[in-house]
């Protein structure tokens, strides 16, 4: 588990790392170098939401209007405040100038913050068409982009397609994401592939045990008519939830994330059986 978190952290840091300004100088792009040096001073000194940060990024973009990194940095505050209009204008410019770097960011954010599943699928597929290497992870490192693609297909109702993408990704992954088996298990549950669901939840339990894992496993046992196991799993789910061993994101509700009320409601159904 610690190893996975470490790997995810590395990806997170890599993705969010500032550009190497000197590299632009070596490429002979002095405008981008000057803009980059300006941005370097801002990052770490000012909050993304602040007037100083936004104005500083504007100044960098006046020097170099095609410096994609500054558009992406400006857009961060807007996506976090739920301003889909300004966010989209800015991230589109970042994608326009550096599609290989920012298609993945736009995909990661449009599905997560605005439930734009079709848009995210298009971005991921476009990136996939453009590169011969692995398309990599989301901008915060939680998922591989293929897992996001699978989740997006699920959200637009194409669950079989989602399963195929997720199965293939897990089979080929160099590392497994912290929620991958959980999502796969839920997809199996929703498509009535109960044996596969149990296997997936068992794998999730070994990798990163969560309240959600036990809650959905309980629902599988409920479907199979295994009352004792159904109740047992709900009890574990509630305990895990109260111990805060559950899915969490500081910004959004995650796909397949559950709430305490859902566990309690299911327990009350179980008790009345």
């Amino acid at each position: 588990m610690n190893k996975i978190v470490f790997i995810l952290m590395c990806f997170f840091l890599k993705i969010h790392a500032q550009p190497n300004c000197k590299a632009f100088l070596h490429e002979g792009d002095s405008l981008k170098y000057r803009a980059c040096k300006l941005v370097e001073k801002l990052t770490g000194s000012y909050y993304q939401f602040s007037k100083e940060y936004q104005k500083g990024m504007d100044e960098a973009l006046l020097i170099c209007p095609y410096f994609a990194y500054a558009y992406r940095e400006k857009s961060s505050a807007y996506v976090k405040s739920g301003d889909f209009l300004n966010w989209k204008k800015l991230i589109d410019l970042a994608v326009k100038y550096e599609p290989l770097d920012y298609l993945s960011v736009r995909a990661s954010l449009r599905y997560k913050f605005f439930s734009d599943y079709k848009g995210a699928i298009l971005d991921i597929e476009k990136l996939d068409d453009m590169v011969s290497y692995d398309i990599g992870e989301t901008s915060n490192g939680t998922y591989h982009l293929n897992v996001v693609k699978a989740l997006c297909y699920k959200e637009i109702g194409q669950k079989q397609k989602a399963i195929k993408i997720l199965e293939k990704q897990i089979e080929n992954e160099s590392y497994i994401g912290v929620y991958d088996y959980l999502h796969l298990g839920v997809l199996y549950l929703e498509t009535e592939m109960y044996d596969n669901a149990i296997i997936a939840f068992e794998k999730q339990e070994k990798l990163n045990d969560l309240a959600e894992n036990h809650y959905y496993l309980a629902l599988v046992f409920k479907k199979l008519g295994l009352s004792k196991k159904y109740i047992q799993q709900l009890v574990i789910a509630e305990k895990f939830y109260l111990d805060r061993k559950k899915m969490h994101d500081s910004y959004n509700q995650l796909i397949d994330q559950i709430y305490l009320e859902e566990i309690k409601s299911e327990r009350s159904i179980a008790n009345n059986k």
Partner: peptide
């Protein structure tokens, strides 16, 4: 093309924090 790119960004006034 350069002129139109320059117009994509301009120095504007912001509140204390975005939004």
């Amino acid at each position: 093309s350069c002129i139109s790119e320059q117009k994509t960004i301009e120095l504007k006034e912001y509140p204390r924090h975005v939004d």
